[in-house]
């Protein structure tokens, strides 16, 4: 036995030991952790709201219009927007969550994935394929906290 350890120091040592197990042991993160933003591309209508609201100017979207032939005889041809690029620059992102909140089509989600450090900031620009892969790491929404009020979108 060495020197006696105070309770406070002892707790700090325990905590340090728990942290030291990473990366062999993955941390257990709360379901609402803001690790990375995932894109569910199928839901994205290229409305541009997220890119316009982002205070860090770090969402880059490119799209073009494609003709949609009439669905029935005599119908009018229409156009639809097709996404060409969706990228988030996580070197600039401030993890505010405004884009996730503002998306009217449920195309953006928080994932707790955090292990995407890079040595070059340019490598923190993640394109649609990577953003979509993160979609499969998005956890189910956690149950309501005890005593939580009704959700604003729920009636009554």
């Amino acid at each position: 036995m060495g020197e006696p350890v105070s309770v406070v120091d002892g707790l700090a040592l325990l905590r340090a030991a728990a942290a030291a197990r990473y990366p062999d042991v993955q941390p257990e993160l709360p379901a609402r952790s803001r690790g990375v933003i995932a894109l569910f591309e199928e839901n994205c209508t290229v409305c541009m709201l997220c890119a316009r609201e982002c205070p860090a100017w770090c969402i880059h979207l490119e799209s073009h219009k494609e003709p949609v032939p009439p669905t029935h005889e005599g119908g009018r041809p229409r156009t639809r927007n097709v996404l060409d690029r969706f990228a988030i620059d996580f070197a600039l992102c401030l993890y505010c969550g405004i884009c996730v909140e503002v998306c009217p089509f449920d195309a953006l989600f928080w994932s707790p994935e955090f292990a995407y450090a890079a040595t070059d900031p340019a490598d923190l620009v993640h394109e649609r394929d990577r953003l979509r892969e993160w979609m499969w790491t998005v956890p189910a929404p956690p149950p309501w906290d005890e005593g939580a009020g009704p959700a604003p979108e729920e009636p009554g």
Binding site: M48, R52, W57, C58, H60, S63, V82
Partner: peptide, 24 residues
């Protein structure tokens, strides 16, 4: 500003477009 393109536009088109949406 990355919000400049309209839906269905590329950023290159937005740069030369007449109608400009300004960043909030």
């Amino acid at each position: 500003w990355p919000g400049a393109p309209e839906p269905g536009q590329s950023s290159a088109e937005a740069a030369v477009g007449r109608r400009k949406t300004l960043p909030p």
